[in-house]
Design a protein around this nucleic acid. Structure first.
Length: 703
DNA sequence: AAGAATGAAAC
DNA sequence: GTTTCATTCTT
């Protein structure tokens, strides 16, 4: 890892250490609550994503920024950001000395020259992502509301809280409500909801537990699931998997392998939930532990859907001006994060479920604690079904040692360095492995998880191999599971998120969650720098003349690079089939926006249409970067042609994933659930009902 | 904490 | 039209 892991961390720590109230928020929010224990800020944030909606309203303001912040979900990434995330590591590899800014510039250049078709893939993904996000968070506003004028602070906290908890059937409503809340926020302490995390002690926890329990009841029945703990162990699995577990292993495999059509998926999901409700279902073996939690009482109504809650704003990380100071206390150490308590398991489970329901996938990380728990479960069975060989690198459960590069097999022989980096994932995996190796039951559990993962991965691969081609979009839709899952499961909390995308993000290790997330993300084609170079070259040449060189350049020169296309996490690098020519149209360049284009005086349009900066303006800033000369460009570009790379892998990327459920589908489900949740809460399906459903579930599985 | 890029949404 | 913020991570 480059140091990068830390990138975000620093801020985090600061904040955290400073104090992030997040926990508070977490506490009050069921979902958050669960996470809170485990994770540090980051996680929370992620969690928040799920929640978000009201965010703005609520609290943004003053004091409780934290509150707000926590809740606030992060905006979904746009196509370019996805691209950056996916390729930044490559750029960095190529130009180690280049700093991020420089890398960003290069990425912008790449983006500019990227073939429209390829670009479209990212665009589609971004859209899908956004759509899902919005479904999950209906009232989400990109911009936190500026602060609203506060009215009277006095709103009743209770109300606010309740509202929060209550389902928002109407987002709009909530938002309005939320807005009001800010006031309340101002006086957080008072608020029930707002209570300081720090202060919150056992009581809060109890409350949370109660809520969770409720939630759990609603969502998953205590019984089978109850095993929340058990489940939790499995956390690695997605909710879907959990559901699936009900079925025999083979069936599970089915889930893994076959993509369900969305509608089906939805149904399954729904039914599955219902099924879960009933204890009677032949589900898994359950353990009963859940009861504890469940017992807690709280009114169901309240608990119901907190997830929706909106959120507020804050971003924490970097920019936000807001400040971190607001936090009250640092008490909570950032580090503490992980959750140890058993409860966490439960939480995780619930969280997972809800997440799935919501369709919230937060970003990448979610906590998973599964690993910790020892409960061994039975998942082992799962393995057999797998048809694929496990090339998957991730963590192959069984063999800790091996890290094969998946990619390798696929294609690239040489990728070594890059692979390694990419291996990062493996790295993650590695850690897991070690754990596994050490612990018995735990090990099993992990294995099972891993198996699942690997299976999935294999499946995916297989698919991809088959070819989908590039493809696209929808089909490739993310699995909800993955999203939800990932959140839930991820064991490593913080880092993942922020940290370097490369490694961690990619990392699959732990959970599927990540894996899933990754898959989706990975499904996006990753292009070799060479490709871009070429393009740029072409472009450059064309334009070249203009004065100096614009920022385009990729630098490179490294021959090595050429040979190895990048592969990150398994994903292959593809070379888009691009034609360099296209480039012409696009204005290339990275001109920063800061200077409004309109205001940019130094850019002149050249004959070919490009904008060329005035000489002075762009500087080569980094040592690395040299201004390119044609030569440079040429060098780079040259060699690369790897036909194969392109096609093959790419495919997998987008297309490869089985689309278990589309995000949209999940979102839908979530929405429905929300709507009805209250009802359900009140009345649990009768056994008979459940039974009726069972067949459905089965059938789904079969399919 | 700033900043590099693009883009989507909100002012 | 302009501003925010999403990601990453070095400086």
């Amino acid at each position: 890892m480059k140091g990068g892991g830390g990138g975000k961390e620093p801020p985090e720590e600061g904040e955290v250490s400073g104090k992030r109230p997040k926990r508070k928020c977490l506490q009050w929010h069921p979902l958050l609550a669960k996470k809170a224990p485990d994770f540090s800020e980051e996680e929370e944030e992620e969690d928040e994503e799920e929640l978000e909606k009201e965010g703005e309203c609520a609290g943004m303001e003053d004091d409780s920024e934290e509150y707000s912040s926590e809740q606030r979900a992060r905006r979904p990434m746009n196509a370019f950001l996805l691209f950056c995330k996916r390729h930044r590591s490559l750029v960095r590899q190529e130009h180690p000395r280049l700093d991020n800014r420089g890398a960003t510039k290069i990425l912008a250049d790449w983006w500019a020259v990227l073939d429209p078709k390829e670009k479209q893939k990212y665009t589609d993904m971004a859209k899908e992502y956004k759509d899902a996000f919005m479904k999950a968070n209906p009232g989400y506003k990109w911009c936190p509301a500026t602060n609203k004028p506060v009215k009277s602070p006095s709103h009743s906290v209770n109300n606010a809280r309740k509202k929060v908890w209550s389902l928002p059937s109407n987002p709009s409503k909530e938002s309005s409500v939320a807005k009001k809340q800010p006031k309340t926020d101002s006086t957080p302490q008072l608020n029930f909801a707002m209570a300081d995390p720090n202060k919150m002690g056992g009581l809060s926890m109890l409350l949370l537990a109660g809520e969770h329990a409720l939630t759990a009841r609603e969502i998953s029945s205590s019984s089978s699931q109850t095993g929340c703990t058990d489940v939790a162990k499995h956390t690695g699995k997605s909710a879907l998997f959990q559901l699936a577990e009900v079925r025999p292993p083979e069936d599970l495999s089915i889930f893994n392998n076959k993509p369900l059509n969305p509608s089906l998926a939805v149904r399954c999901l729904r039914y599955g939930w219902l099924a879960v409700y009933t204890p009677e279902l032949p589900v898994t073996t359950s353990s009963s532990s859940s009861s504890n939690t469940g017992s807690t009482s709280s009114s169901p109504t309240d608990t119901t859907l907190s997830d929706l809650s909106p959120c507020k704003t804050l971003k924490k990380k970097k920019k936000k001006k807001e400040n971190k100071d607001s936090d009250e206390n640092p008490t909570s150490p950032k580090k503490a994060k992980k959750r140890h308590s058993p409860e966490s398991d439960l939480d995780s489970v619930m969280f997972t479920i809800e997440a799935v329901a919501k369709g919230a996938w937060g970003s990448e990380e979610t906590p998973k604690k599964k690993a910790h728990l020892s409960g061994s479960e039975s998942n082992d069975d799962v393995e057999p079904p797998v048809g694929v060989e496990d090339t998957t690198p991730h963590c192959s459960p069984p063999h800790p040692t091996e890290l094969e590069e998946k990619d390798t097999d696929t294609k690239q022989p040489q990728t070594r360095q890059e692979d390694r980096e990419q291996e990062v994932k493996p790295e993650t995996c590695g850690s897991r492995k070690s754990e596994r190796s050490c612990k018995g039951a735990l090990y099993k559990t992990l294995v099972s998880e891993g198996m699942l993962t690997s299976l999935r991965a294999n499946v995916d691969r297989g698919k991809r191999g088959s070819i989908r081609g590039s493809l696209s979009d929808h089909e490739g839709s993310w699995n909800d599971e993955s999203w939800g899952f990932s959140q839930a499961a991820t064991s490593n909390p913080k880092k993942l998120k922020k940290s370097k995308s490369k490694e961690e993000t990619t990392t699959p290790g732990l959970g599927k969650l990540e894996e899933e997330f990754e898959k989706k993300f990975n499904s996006l084609p990753q292009y070799s720098p060479l490709t871009f170079d070429k393009k740029s070259v072409a472009v450059t040449k064309k334009k070249k003349n203009s004065t100096s060189s614009p920022p385009e350049p990729p630098k490179p020169c490294k021959g090595e690079f050429t040979s190895s296309p990048v592969v990150k996490s398994g994903s292959p690098c593809v070379s888009p089939s691009p034609e360099p020519q296209k480039v012409l149209d696009t204005p290339v360049g990275s001109q920063k926006r800061k200077a409004r284009k309109s205001k940019i005086t130094h850019l002149v349009r050249t004959a070919d249409g490009r904008l060329s900066p005035a000489e002075g303006e762009l500087k080569p800033q980094f040592p690395d970067e040299k201004p390119f000369t044609q030569e440079t460009l040429c060098n780079r570009g040259v060699c690369y042609n790897d036909p194969r790379s392109a096609e093959v892998d790419v495919t997998d990327a987008s297309g490869g994933l089985p689309a278990f459920f589309s995000l949209a589908a999940l979102a839908e489900v979530a929405a429905m659930e929300n709507v009805h949740r209250a009802q359900r809460a009140v009345s649990i399906p009768s056994e008979g009902q459940v039974k009726d459903m069972a067949p459905v579930l089965i059938s789904c599985a079969d399919q």
